[in-house]
Design a binder for these strands. Sequence first.
DNA 1: GCCGAATGTTCTACCATATAACATTTCCGC
DNA 2: GCGGAAATGTTATATGGTAGAACATTCGGC
Lengths: 157, 157
Amino acid sequence: MDDRPSPPDTRPHRNRPDAGPVSGIVGYRLRRAQMAVFQRFATHFAELALTPAEFSVLALIEANPGSKQSEIAAALGIKRANFVALIRGLDARGLTERHQTAGDRRANALFLTAEGRQVAARANAVQATFEAECVARLGGAAARDQLMDLLARLIGP
Amino acid sequence: MDDRPSPPDTRPHRNRPDAGPVSGIVGYRLRRAQMAVFQRFATHFAELALTPAEFSVLALIEANPGSKQSEIAAALGIKRANFVALIRGLDARGLTERHQTAGDRRANALFLTAEGRQVAARANAVQATFEAECVARLGGAAARDQLMDLLARLIGP
DNA sequence: GCCGAATGTTCTACCATATAACATTTCCGC
DNA sequence: GCGGAAATGTTATATGGTAGAACATTCGGC
C-alpha cells in the first residue's frame, strides 16, 4: 500500500463496479452456477453431513459394491492420493468398509455397511428432491436435458 | 481397514464402476464441466501466470478504476477477507496499486499500473481466443447463449 | 526370475472458501 | 454535536478440493 494521490475516479457508477467484462464469460458463469448449486446442496445435506464428494462416493459404492479404490476414484475424476482421506473419513463414520480382495493383496474392495446403506438411502431421497428443485429452476425436464448436453460438450476431450 | 472376508463381487463389469447414479445429476456434471474448463484456462494462462480469480480482478479494475476493494470483491462473489491476499499478490507483482481514497480514509481505491494495463491487454487477448474455443466446443454462438441462459437460472436467488 | 506396472499411502503445496474477531473510520438518528 | 451502528480493511484459522512426487507392496508378462 502507498498513499500517493489517487487518479480521478472515472467509473460510470461510483458504487456498482461493472461486472460486464467477466459476466459474459462462459467459464465465469459456470463457476458462479456451480457455487450456487453446491451452496444449496450443502443446505439440503446439512442434516446428513455429506459433502458432494462423499455423496458421490457412497452412491458409486452402492451401485458397485466390491470396487477398488482406484476404480471409484477414477470414475469420479478424483486422484487416488486424494481419495485416501475421503474414504478413511467415511470408514471412520462407519458408513463404508475396506476389505482385502481375494485375488489381489494390493487392492481394497469397498462396501457399504448396514448403516452406510441406510444413509445412502436417505441421501438418495434428499438428492431426488434437490434435483427436482434444480430442474424446476431450469424450467423443466427439457431445459435440464439441454443443459446436460451442453455441459457434456464442455467436458469432452 | 480390516481383513474380514469380502462379500462376493456383484458388479456388472469388474473394472468399470457404473457412474450412472451420479452422472445424471445436474450439480455433478456442472462440477465436471467447470473443472474441465478451468483446466484449459490454466493451460492458456500458464505464460501469464494468472488464475481465473486474478484475471477477473484485473478485468474489473481495468473496467472500474478507482473502485474500492469491497466493491470489486462483492462484484465477483469473493468475501472481502479473502480478497486481501489476492490483491496483495497482484500488488506485489506490480500489476495493481492501492491508493488512499480522498473522501474515505478506510477504503483503498484500486488501479492498474502501467504494467498491469499491459498484462490486462494480453490477458484479454488470451481470454478471447479461449472463449472462442469454448464456443466452438459448444457448437456455436446460439448454443453459448442457451448455456448462459440456463446457468443464469441456476444462479438466480 | 525380473522388471515394469498397478495399488494404496504419505507428504507437500496451492487455490478457494467461510467464519470470527479486531481497529479504524464513517454515517445516521437523536 | 454525540453516540451507537455500520462499513472497510485486515488478521487468523479452518475446511474442502486439487495436484504432484515419492515410496513400499504386490501383481503380471516376458
